[in-house]
Design a protein around this nucleic acid. Structure first.
Lengths: 233, 233
DNA sequence: GTACCTATATATAAAGA
DNA sequence: TTCTTTATATATAGGTA
């Protein structure tokens, strides 16, 4: 009898694939599969999904969905050519720039931090209660009340002001990317969270991943005290 | 002949499911399916994946993977009971707290922002070149050089200092959750990015998602100028 | 890296508990 | 919500180009 033309899909154990080229192929296939599933979830259920995946080689791949009612979409409505440039739900893969890679690195760790806070919640509730009288930093960020959140808000405003103001003093060849958070009232020294109309009227949101400065990226990572000993990050 | 005991899996169009209860069931199934796929990708390829999904009701669900060589893992090695509390790769679903929900909301938009920067890169490169002589904020954040990243670093340090210092002045019933970024040198007024040893020795990382203050969450969201008109967010 | 192929492993729609 | 069950749609391993 004739030999089968294909072995068909073989069952594999869920463990790290040893052969490197095989692993790379599997990564590509499953990454696209994951993003397709995410896309379907977005469409079927009308929900927001954000994903970051780092390839075995360290390249970041991301997936995101723009809801109609987001800040970004409000920006998009002001773009010169909004229609064709940003479809509602799309798969996004890019890995051109080391600074973006650094941003993803930071964000992935922020995500992990939030998730870590969550995971240990129930298990450690008893521990927390036992230390109810302990120092303030033993309590989770969730315990922050309105006043505390006000403080955090002020800190975020200051972050934004610093970045925008300091950036604007540099040579005219960069942008801060922070406009989403509002505009700065330099006269009164406070942040005005308005609709960013004045800013947007004079500039398009259009921008790219043009220049690459790979040397500065690792340094930025080190600023945040992240270790990068292996090749993953 | 006997009627089939099941219709089996039916093909459905990838479009928003109209029946609400049906949508809810599909969401739960596909969310867990998505997280399972992500988990397998983590294990098979040894890569880092982070996912945030908002349910139709607005509850956040997250998935994350802790690499051995992360900041978080460095913290974990100092925890009183590190072994059983944080397995290497796990699926995490929690939606207990509105502040965490707000954090996820912010993070999801940060992710979208980064992804947006990417998506339009190539298409808009021509536009950017045409406006090469334009104002600085027309250029993408990737164009920031080492000096600019230094400024951003300083701003992030200031953010951390503000949060930690202001939080420490409040009643002893909250924590900032910012310890990951280092410790504060109150005497010299600058941030020391050390290994956080002194801080960690006096407190465990254990913490929970205990208290819920739902009223403060929407306010925090408004601070960031995000609209929340519908029930999704 | 991506695109195709085939056979098979897996995910999941529908319905009921 | 969360679990079954069943039948079927879909994803994907192992090839090849």
């Amino acid at each position: 009898m004739a030999k089968k033309s294909s072995m068909g899909r073989q069952k594999i154990a869920i463990a790290k694939i040893p052969k490197k080229n095989h692993l790379q192929v599997t990564f590509s296939k499953r990454r696209s599969g994951l993003f397709k599933k995410a896309s379907e979830l977005c469409t079927l259920c009308g929900v927001e999904v954000a994903i970051i995946v780092f390839s075995p080689a360290g390249k970041p791949f991301s997936f995101g969905h723009h809801e109609v009612d987001t800040v970004i979409d409000r920006f998009l409505t002001r773009r010169p050519k909004p229609a064709e440039s940003v479809p509602a739900c799309q798969i996004l893969e890019a890995h051109r720039n080391n600074n973006i890679r650094e941003l993803n690195f930071v964000l992935a760790h922020l995500l992990n931090q939030v998730e870590f806070e969550r995971k240990n919640g129930e298990e450690l509730e008893r521990f927390r209660i036992a230390n109810e009288k302990g120092v303030w930093w033993e309590l989770p960020i969730e315990r922050l009340g309105t006043g505390e959140l006000e403080q955090l808000k002020l800190a975020m405003e200051e972050l934004r002001r610093n970045v925008v103001e300091q950036s604007s003093m540099l040579a005219g060849d960069h942008r801060s990317g922070m406009e989403l958070f509002g505009t700065v009232d330099h006269v009164h020294g406070s942040i005005q969270f308005q609709d960013c109309e004045d800013v947007l009227e004079t500039k398009p949101l259009d921008h790219v991943n043009g220049g690459i400065s790979s040397s500065s990226a690792p340094a930025f990572s080190n600023y945040l005290n992240f270790r990068r000993d292996d090749g993953i990050f």
